[in-house]
């Protein structure tokens, strides 16, 4: 199973690299034209969503093949807004090293795969980031038996890391900055990196701290491992789209803000129908009772109602997938609403 998966990943990676080369050579100009993505999605009848596939809580198919996770919910929300049906999504599992090529080449319409928004990616990859939907930071996991209490004690340690990530760069930076020597062991997929860590090939495993909590559950003995307190980087995770289709980027961006606005306004999956009768103008505009806000996106005016009805608000998705309602039990922290000391701030719909 795993061996097959690795083989598939390698094949996939090569295939994607070739696909982008061929697509660019033969001229996939249509995919980059104005507002074309929404039309292509509607004609196709399904949203192609680039997802993780290996990260519990964010994007992973369960044994029955049903995709679940925080990033998965986001794509379901977009599908709900377009089709009024959150199941009209085709999830394409991507590893870190092929995710951008998959988006560039048009294999996926949106990349919702715990991807850090950095300036270099934003300016040189031909992609745009829509909105930060998860504020994360990189951390380290070690075996308890090593009796390490701080990442600063990791001088000379071997660290397993996934290749082609900001994690790989932060790791080198952090060790250099603290005058520690590093032996990194780099793997193409997160599964391989975790497996090598679990077989003691490395002393430590590093990724975004949300990913550490998810990965810990996959270890042979999760309780024999701890996550160190240091957070060594800023990892604002954001869905991304191809540059040049501004309307499509608006749809993705406002899907996120609609979910945050809903949480701020106390609108959730269970009370959304009652809220249609609300007198509050913010809620009436959000749910499309007043105004034509969805129409200007090329959608219907009840676009946000559909999202909340089918997927829920931001807080619901968070708690269900990675928060207290999940095995991960990640605290809201920076991802709490701005009214509760966090950074999630819904932009006004008006």
């Amino acid at each position: 199973m795993l061996k097959g998966q690795i083989m598939m990943n390698i094949m996939k990676r090569l295939a994607t690299a070739f696909a982008v080369a061929i697509a660019l050579c033969l001229g996939a100009q249509a995919a980059f034209a104005q507002s074309a993505t929404l039309k292509a999605v509607q004609d196709r009848g399904v949203l192609n969503c680039g997802a993780n596939g290996q990260l519990a809580g964010f994007g992973m198919p369960d044994p029955q093949g049903n995709w679940t996770g925080f990033d998965v919910d986001f794509c379901r929300a977009i599908a709900a807004a377009i089709f009024n049906d959150p199941t009209k999504v085709k999830f394409v599992p991507l590893i870190a090293a092929n995710r951008f090529t998959a988006l560039q080449s048009g294999e996926v319409d949106v990349l919702s795969r715990n991807t850090t928004w950095t300036m270099e990616r934003d300016t040189t990859l031909g992609i745009d980031f829509a909105a930060v939907n998860f504020y994360d930071g990189q951390g380290f996991m070690v075996r308890k038996a090593l009796k390490v209490n701080s990442a600063l004690e990791l001088n000379d340690a071997s660290v397993c890391v996934q290749q082609g990530t900001t994690t790989e760069l932060n790791l080198a930076d952090y060790f250099r900055q603290n005058h520690m020597s590093l032996k990194s062991v780099t793997f193409a997929t997160i599964d391989e990196a975790i497996k090598a860590y679990d077989s003691s090939r490395c002393d430590s495993f590093t990724t975004d701290s949300s990913g550490l909590y998810a990965s810990r559950l996959q270890l042979a003995d999760p309780n024999a491992n701890i996550v160190l307190p240091e957070i060594i980087s800023k990892e604002p995770l954001s869905p991304a789209v191809r540059q040049g289709d501004d309307t499509w980027e608006d749809i993705v961006r406002w899907t996120h803000y609609a979910m945050v606005d809903a949480e701020e306004l106390g609108v959730n999956q269970h009370n959304v129908d009652d809220m249609l009768k609300s007198d509050a103008p913010d809620i009436r505009r959000l749910l499309g009772v007043e105004g034509q806000f969805g129409v200007s996106l090329g959608l219907t005016k009840d676009w946000a109602y559909r999202i909340i009805k089918e997927v829920g608000n931001y807080g619901e998705s968070f708690e269900r997938n990675v928060g207290q309602g999940s095995p991960l039990k990640i605290a809201r922290g920076l991802n709490a609403l701005w009214t509760k000391g966090g950074l999630q701030y819904g932009l006004p719909i008006r």
Partner: peptide, 24 residues
């Protein structure tokens, strides 16, 4: 690339490709 040995494909067509995004 399957086992993390840093050969040309792993380092160049892996890390470098992804960090620069210049697949072609």
């Amino acid at each position: 690339v399957a086992i993390g040995y840093p050969d040309l494909v792993q380092v160049f067509a892996g890390s470098v490709l992804n960090l620069t995004g210049q697949a072609v």
